[in-house]
Amino acid sequence: MSAADVLPSRSATASRQGEGRRLVSTRLLASELRLIGGRRRNQAGLVVLAAVPIMMAIAVKVSTPGPGDGPDFLSSITSNGLFVPFAALSVEIAMFLPLAMSMLAGDSVAGEANIGTLRYLLTVPVDRARLLAVKYASLCLGALWGVAAVVIPGAVAGIALFGTGDMTTLSGSQLGFGAAVWRLVLASLYLSAGLAAFAAIGLFISTLTEQPIGAAIAIMVVNILAWILDAVPQLGWLHPWLFMHDWLAFPDLLRDPIQWSNLLHGLGIDLAYAVVFWLAAWARFAGKDITS
């Protein structure tokens, strides 16, 4: 086969240059999502995330909750199935969801460096800032994905087992089903934002190494350290500035009216962490020698 059969002629090169580059393309992001979604490991992770609310719903159904347990989510489940995803979120936000984010974020840059595909992406060429932006966007969508894997199966299992009665808010008033679903959507978005901020820390750590597992462990260590620091009362001055401190404010969405102050503070902290650590990742990655 001659060269002319396969490759466009030289004039094609010229016209290709003349086309004018597109500034934005979603193709790489779509490719990233396919890569993340296609990995067996990530699929297994989603199954684990989804299994927790289903197990909780079944456990509550088969046992009769004793009286006097206080107004926690678990004891409220029997009145409204939508409490299942809320309860599951409060259980998974400390460990499982950050663990899932750690795996994805650890893989983001270090994974590509480890198998050497990073050098081929960069010589395509993909601008380094663009690569980090796409990687971060895919992590943000991954956060939404992870939360959805908890909330949707949880809601389905809860409604199937406990029905859709009025939801009693933490303030004691009653919410209709539609309003309750809306509160659940807000809670999901709020925690996804928190996980996305956490993912920015992960993205930065992932630019420091070529070992994705090492990066994932380091990211998880950051999460655990934050929870430990948050549990030390003597460090009270620090608590409002920990990225995860306001995650636990998401039940404020179940008050009537919604108590926004902690939630807004939490979103501000999320934004600050996302910007600072994305920029740190960029500062590290922009001039890094790619020797893998």
Binding site: Q17, L35, G38, I115, G116, T117, R119, Y120, P125
Partner: peptide, 16 residues
């Protein structure tokens, strides 16, 4: 680089 094809230090692709 848009006009350069390259092979650097052996192949590297996503195994799966």
């Amino acid at each position: 680089l848009h006009r350069v094809g390259s092979l650097v230090e052996g192949p590297a692709f996503h195994p799966y």
